[in-house]
């Protein structure tokens, strides 16, 4: 539970709220170089790196198409919680990693049953997406609009 609380997505949740979310999460172990998902695949879940490191890259190009490396505490595939859009990149385990998987259908049911918890998670999600957009805008020189 402490491990969950330390994750940025759930940092605002109270212990009782964390227990409810904990029931919805799935733990998976990936070994180094294992593919987590492919570019273009329909996204159904958000992944949180609990331990280890993952590599975000262009499809089939872990070396030449490297986009980012994400460590413990970060999450990826967050757009899958919002819509059915295809994955924009391939993700592989850069090291042996433990991932926590949060499915969109569970997030939607959380919105229905525990809107307070869902709003806290959604807020963190929005912050994260905002930060990503700001980062991207800075890269293309449009920071004055953000």
């Amino acid at each position: 539970m402490e491990k969950l609380h330390s994750l940025s997505l759930f940092v605002n949740l109270l212990p009782a709220e964390l227990a409810i979310v904990d029931e919805m999460l799935h733990e998976r172990h990936y070994i180094k170089d294992e593919v987590i998902f492919d570019e273009g695949e329909e996204g159904k879940a958000l992944y949180i790196v609990a331990d280890g490191e993952v590599l975000v890259c262009r499809q089939g190009a872990p070396d030449s198409g490297r986009i980012a490396t994400l460590g413990a505490g970060t999450f990826f595939g967050e757009l899958a919680l919002l819509d059915d859009a295809p994955r924009s990149a391939q993700v592989r385990a850069a090291k042996n990693s433990d991932l926590i998987v949060f499915f969109r259908d569970d997030f939607v049911s959380l919105l229905d049953t525990h809107s307070r918890i869902a709003s806290k998670v959604a807020r963190q999600l929005a912050r994260h997406i905002g930060a990503r957009m700001r980062e991207l805008a800075l890269k293309v020189g449009a920071h004055q609009h953000l």
Binding site: H26, R28, Y30, E34, V35, I36, F37, E41, K44, A45, V101, F103, D105
Partner: peptide, 16 residues
Amino acid sequence: HAVPNAFFERTLFLLH
């Protein structure tokens, strides 16, 4: 938990 990683996301969606 019994589903291999490669099939996990698709299977869980279908379970739902």
